[in-house]
Design a protein around this nucleic acid. Structure first.
Lengths: 220, 220
DNA sequence: ACTCAACTTGACCATACGGTCAGAACAAGA
DNA sequence: TCTTGTTCTGACCGTATGGTCAAGTTGAGT
């Protein structure tokens, strides 16, 4: 059933040399990557530890050595995605005005949607199911982050740099629009003749999204 | 285990009178409604026929009498949602211009997001997993619908009634933004202090979304 | 009252899944 | 080389799930 049958890998087939701790990190990384893919494609309920193990290239029992339970593994995957998004939002703060800040934020989130679609899908799935494992993050980190950005937007509005729109709904629109290209990527690809968006199309997409949004908030 | 124990329902507990065919329709309706809820909350893989049966108020074996397999039941649920959306899009065609047409479309989709959040979630889940059961709909009905609306939008642009934006990306933005309030309703609720949006907040939301989008396409 | 197809249901089955375990293989320090 | 903790793995287990089945019950048509 396993996809390799060399039968004589020097150790575990990953990174021939390196310290013990490094090998462990590499294995965990491979598992997390495989898990993200499987969870994204099948959902939490549809994912199986066997499938994740196969994709990571190790026996199921070994997978359980690194991650005791399916829930624990899933939690780590979701936490990773959340962290990635938070880090990518720094562009927001460093901007001097809405055109630059929101434009750069759209660019950043769109890039993540293209390079990390599976993460976005896992997050969407988690939230759609009522956020059973990351509810605490929503109530603390995400809420703080959102309020912080809302304050910045309100300042821009007060300074007359953009139209008077509700900051929360603007943020929701940014999330919805950018993540849509990851979560509904399959639908978009189908409507694009069955082919993924080309590099040119992708640039046009970002420009189009930014154009509508920035014009929509009176910046342009 | 079953939640009722009356033990003496005259027939099946649903609609005491009515023809045979009508009773069948009522039972199927109850099953489909329960299934939509369970599929939305747990995903296809996490949903169980037992849970759906319990929620519909009949034994699992009886559920299999009406829907042979889990897949068949799921397919019917997804088809229903798709139909609902298509019907709600009529407002688009009847409009004389973009302000009215797109504004009304946003209103319609937002209302569906509020009244039918589970349907939206099931659809999102299906598409995110690669549309294993409704791929044909995407390639035929949805593609035709999309091209038709894109043509209308292009006409509006040609007539100088709105800004020159890519019709497809505009449609994606409409879908993303409106469905976000259903699919990510839990996240929005959490960021709203744990309370669902009130009627007033809901009206403000619709106005805000329409405001940004319509201004974004040069109509306002 | 009788018939027969439509419907209902508890009990049952095979399978697949998450998780366990005992022991083998390995590597690093003494 | 020996020891010891870490890592690896096949075999195994209990449970839950989708689905089946045979034996009922019901009710409309005659």
């Amino acid at each position: 059933m396993r996809d390799d049958e060399s039968g004589k890998r020097s150790k575990n087939g990953r990174s021939g040399s390196g310290s013990r701790a490094e090998a462990r990190r590499a294995t965990e990384e491979a598992i997390l990557k495989a898990a993200e893919t499987v969870f994204a494609e099948a959902g939490f309920g549809g994912a199986t530890m066997q499938l994740i193990a196969d994709m990571a290239g190790l026996p199921k029992a070994n997978l359980h050595y690194y991650f005791a339970t399916k829930e624990a593994l899933y939690r780590r995957v979701v936490e990773r995605i959340f962290t990635t998004w938070l880090e990518a939002a720094d562009v927001f703060d460093e901007a001097v005005g809405p055109a630059e800040g929101i434009g750069a934020y759209i660019d950043a989130k769109m890039e993540i949607s293209r390079s990390h679609p599976n993460g976005s899908k896992v997050w969407a799935s988690e939230v759609m199911h009522g956020a059973p494992v990351i509810q605490d993050y929503l109530e603390t980190t995400l809420r703080d982050w959102t309020e912080g950005r809302a304050k910045i937007i309100r300042r821009w509005i007060a300074q007359g740099q953009m139209a008077d729109v509700d900051p929360h709904h603007l943020l929701y629109m940014l999330w919805a629009t950018t993540q849509h290209y990851a979560d509904f990527g399959h639908q978009i690809e189908t409507l694009n003749g069955g082919k993924p968006l080309s590099d040119e199309q992708w640039e046009a997409t970002k420009a189009s999204v930014k154009g509508i949004v920035l014009r929509g908030i009176g910046v342009l």
